[in-house]
């Protein structure tokens, strides 16, 4: 399973005064089992790209090849694309609509034409993965749940379709720290169990740094950088120039360095920052 995107472009409002090149000759590859983070400021083209990947928008030009199949070609069935590529929108809890949690999660798998028994087993499995107890919550209205629980149910609805590519657009936005952690853990779990490709769009650089194998940076419709989190977040000035930033701990290390202290600015999480600072302070102490 892999994704190849070649020469993909898309223009909104073509021929009108408000014409805007939303995607400008995008090329990339995503390999089997990768977790890919996409960052970019509002309007950089991230959402347009996601919508192309699951066939919501037809490409103006270029090719999107998912598992060897070019989804931009005529005669491709949408159901076929969406079976492979599941998209969790921003604030997906607003899309819950069924009378019960179980029915809501069953909606997707049912539409795939699966047997009743298979749908039932997928609903149970998906709810278990997002840590919503089927027996306790399955027959409850989704609208009675907390914000974090609603979001997990909405994600379960997509997971239940067992997509080979799971795309999440800002999955942690607006959640409190506890619910935020729950969602991150659940993404890791799903990835481990389904071994799918995960594409994560987020403004939270710490999450992107800590979850992704590969980070893609978008600016004004162009894909301007692709690399490991380590490579991407070592280019703080370049990121700042396009209104992005590095994770908070990384920012702190850069600020220390700017004050004339020779320190490693590579830490992307608290644990490694702790080690770097500890070692620095110990070295200073020994030299005294």
């Amino acid at each position: 399973m892999s994704i190849q995107v070649r020469n993909l472009s898309h223009v909104y409002n073509k021929g009108l005064a408000a014409e805007q090149k939303a995607l400008d000759n995008i090329n990339f590859d995503i390999y089997d089992g990768e977790v890919v983070g996409i960052i970019g400021h509002t309007g950089s083209g991230k959402s347009t790209l996601l919508q192309h990947l699951n066939g919501l928008i037809k490409a103006d030009c270029g090719n999107i090849i998912i598992d060897g199949k070019d989804i931009t070609k005529q005669g491709i069935s949408m159901r076929d694309i969406r079976r492979r590529v599941g998209l969790v929108f921003q604030y997906p809890e607003y899309q819950l609509f069924e009378e019960t949690v179980a029915k809501d999660v069953a909606f997707g798998p049912k539409n795939l034409g699966l047997s009743e028994a298979e749908v039932e087993s997928r609903v149970r499995e998906a709810l278990e993965m997002v840590r919503i107890d089927y027996d306790e919550y399955g027959q409850r209205s989704p609208f009675e749940l907390s914000g974090g629980q609603k979001r997990r149910v909405a994600i379960a609805g997509v997971i239940a379709m067992k997509p080979q590519v799971l795309i999440l657009d800002e999955p942690t936005a607006g959640l409190d720290p506890g619910a935020h952690k729950d969602i991150l853990n659940l993404i890791k779990d799903v990835h481990e169990r389904q071994n799918n490709i995960i594409i994560l769009v987020s403004h939270n650089m710490e999450d992107v740094a800590n979850l992704s194998d590969k980070v893609m940076v978008m600016d004004r419709g162009k894909l301007i950088m692709v690399g490991t989190p380590q490579e991407i977040f070592s280019r703080r000035d370049r990121l700042e120039a396009i209104a992005l930033n590095v994770p908070p701990v990384t920012e702190m290390m850069y600020e220390v360095k700017e004050r004339g202290i020779e320190i490693d600015t590579s830490p992307l999480n608290i644990k490694s920052a702790e080690d770097v600072i500890y070692n620095y302070l110990k070295r200073i102490e020994m030299n005294r």
Partner: peptide, 13 residues
């Protein structure tokens, strides 16, 4: 704050 921590580290040169 981050500034506090930066100040703390930077006093050890």
């Amino acid at each position: 704050t981050v500034e506090d921590m930066v100040d703390f580290i930077c006093q050890y040169k």
